[in-house]
């Protein structure tokens, strides 16, 4: 299957998953296209469309929490950033995704205390 077709399929499937969670695809179309392209390549290589911005360890329990959309497993952290780590998804009310910084998990947990 060519990459463009698979990107379209992932987009359709994943939008149904993130919608009830209050997220949408980023309005930054160029970024979305780039990230989906990475995911399609990662899926071809590793069998699943893992997050292009987080590292796999080879331990199934760890890695399965990084299959896109990984929002359910990092909900509080991503809700605080109003985007997911790689920026493929943002909260539905976000119009300017470039204004959202990446907040590390450590910073998020420290701020929560």
């Amino acid at each position: 299957m060519d990459n463009e077709k698979r990107k379209g399929q992932l987009r359709t499937m994943f939008s149904k998953v993130v919608d009830p969670l209050g997220y949408k695809f980023s309005p930054d179309e160029e970024l979305v296209d780039f990230l989906l392209e990475q995911e399609v390549n990662i899926e071809k290589e590793k069998g699943s469309p893992f997050c292009p911005c987080q590292g796999l360890t080879g331990e199934r329990e760890h890695d399965m929490k990084l299959v896109c959309p990984c929002i359910p497993f990092h909900r509080e952290h991503y809700d605080a950033m109003r985007r997911c780590w790689c920026g493929l998804y943002v909260h539905k009310d976000v119009k300017d995704p470039d204004s959202l910084p990446q907040i590390s998990l450590k910073e998020f947990l420290e701020a929560k205390k």
């Binding site: 998953v17 009830p20 969670l21 929002i71 359910p72 497993f73 909900r75």
Partner: peptide, 8 residues
Amino acid sequence: KFLDAEEI
């Protein structure tokens, strides 16, 4: 219900 996010 999906155990990690009940909205799904």
